[in-house]
C-alpha cells in the first residue's frame, strides 16, 4: 500500500517535471496558443480563413529575416543591419531590373547584393574581430545611406511587367510569400539540426574556444552565418518590393531588426548564443503577427500598439526558463 502511494507520488513528480520540461522547451508555443485563444474569444472574425492567411502574409517578410537572425544569434552574434540592408537591396534590385528589363536579373541582384553585404559583416566580425553589435551597427548606418543616395531619398518603382506577380499570386488559397516563408523555415530547421554547419554554429555560440580547439574553422562559420542571414534579407527584400512594386529608401525596413530580434528572443533563443530553436522563432513570429492582427481587429489605437507589443515581449521572456 505504502509502495503504491510512493509510486503515485513518483508519477505525479514525473508528470510535474515533464510539464516543467515542456514549459522550458516550448513556452513560446504555449504562449502562442494562449494568445490565439484570447484572440478567438475577443473577435469572431479572427478565425476566418482569409484573416488567418492575412496574418501569415503580413509576417512572411519579418519571418524570413527572423530565421536568418536566429542563425546569427545562435552563433553568439547579432545583426542590426537587416532593416537597412533590406532597403538597400531593394533599391539596387529595382535599379538592375529596370535597367535590364529582366525580373531574373533583379532577383539575382537582390540575392547577390544581400550575400555580399553579409560577407562584409562576417569579415568584420571574424577577421576584423569587431563585436557584431558594433560591426552591424556600422553596416546599418552605411546601407541606409547608400539606399537614400541612389534613390535620392525617395521611392523606387519597378517598371517591368510581371514583377508584382511574385508577391501577389496565390497557389490554391496561399500566397507565394507564405509558401516561401514556410519552405525557408523547414530549410533552416534542417540546416541547423541536421548539417555540419548547424552543429558548428551551436558549438561556436556555446563555447568558441572549445569549438576552435575541436578543429572547427570558426572564422569561416562566422562569415557563413552573416552571409546566410543577409541572403535571407535579400529574399525578404524581393517580396517586400514586389508587393507594391516599389521600395522606399527612407522607410522600408525601418525597425525590422527589432521585430526580428524580438521574435527570436520570444522564441527562446539565448541572447549569448548556443541555445535556441528554429521552431521557437517560427512561433515567435506568429505570436507577434497574431498580436498585431488582434489589436487591429479590436481597433486599438495604433499609437498604443507598441506598448502592448513591448509588454508581451517582456512578459514572454520573463516567464521563459533562464539559466
Amino acid at each position: 500500500m505504502a509502495e503504491l502511494r510512493m509510486n503515485e507520488k513518483k508519477q505525479t513528480n514525473r508528470g510535474l517535471r515533464s510539464l516543467q520540461w515542456l514549459w522550458g522547451e516550448y513556452s513560446v508555443v504555449i504562449a502562442f496558443i494562449i494568445i490565439f485563444i484570447v484572440a478567438t474569444i475577443m473577435n469572431d472574425r479572427f478565425l476566418y480563413l482569409d484573416n488567418q492567411i492575412n496574418i501569415l502574409m503580413q509576417v512572411s517578410t519579418i519571418g524570413i529575416i527572423a530565421l536568418g537572425m536566429t542563425v546569427v544569434m545562435l552563433s553568439g552574434g547579432i545583426d542590426l543591419s537587416v532593416g537597412s540592408v533590406l532597403a538597400m537591396v531593394g533599391v539596387f534590385s529595382v535599379m538592375a531590373m529596370n535597367a535590364s528589363g529582366s525580373i531574373f536579373v533583379g532577383v539575382l541582384t537582390a540575392l547577390s547584393v544581400g550575400a555580399l553585404t553579409g560577407v562584409i559583416n562576417g569579415l568584420l566580425v571574424s577577421k576584423g574581430k569587431i563585436a557584431s553589435f558594433i560591426a552591424t551597427l556600422g553596416m546599418m548606418a552605411a546601407a541606409r545611406s547608400i539606399a537614400l543616395y541612389y534613390a535620392d531619398g525617395g521611392s523606387m518603382s519597378g517598371e517591368v511587367e510581371g514583377f508584382t506577380a511574385i508577391s501577389n499570386t496565390e497557389i490554391g488559397m496561399v500566397d507565394i510569400p507564405i509558401i516561401i516563408f514556410l519552405a525557408l523555415t523547414a530549410l533552416v530547421y534542417v540546416l541547423m539540426q541536421k548539417t555540419r554547419f548547424g552543429r558548428y554554429v551551436y558549438a561556436l555560440g556555446s563555447n568558441e574556444k572549445a569549438a576552435l580547439l575541436s578543429a572547427i574553422r570558426v572564422d569561416r562559420i562566422k562569415i557563413g552565418v552573416y552571409t546566410f542571414c543577409s541572403l535571407l534579407v535579400g529574399v525578404a527584400a524581393i517580396i517586400e518590393t514586389s508587393r507594391l512594386n516599389s521600395i522606399s529608401s527612407s522607410s522600408s525596413g525601418n525597425l525590422y531588426e527589432l521585430d526580428a530580434i524580438a521574435a527570436v528572443i520570444i522564441g527562446g533563443t539565448r541572447m549569448t548564443g548556443g541555445k535556441g530553436k528554429v521552431i521557437g522563432t517560427f512561433f515567435g513570429v506568429l505570436l507577434l503577427g497574431v498580436l498585431n492582427n488582434m489589436m487591429n481587429l479590436l481597433n486599438i489605437s495604433p499609437h498604443l500598439q507598441g506598448l502592448v507589443k513591448g509588454l508581451i515581449i517582456i512578459i514572454a521572456v520573463f516567464f521563459q526558463k533562464r539559466d
Binding site: 552543429r199 551551436y202 558549438a203 563555447n207 572549445a210 569549438a211 575541436s214 578543429a215 548556443g274 541555445k275
Partner: peptide, 18 residues
C-alpha cells in the same frame, strides 16, 4: 570547462564534434 566541452551540446554531439 573552458576549453574542451561545449556545454549546450549533448554528450553524443560533443563526441562527434571533430
Amino acid at each position: 570547462k573552458e576549453n574542451a566541452i561545449v556545454k549546450d551540446l549533448s554528450v553524443i554531439e560533443n563526441m562527434s564534434l571533430s
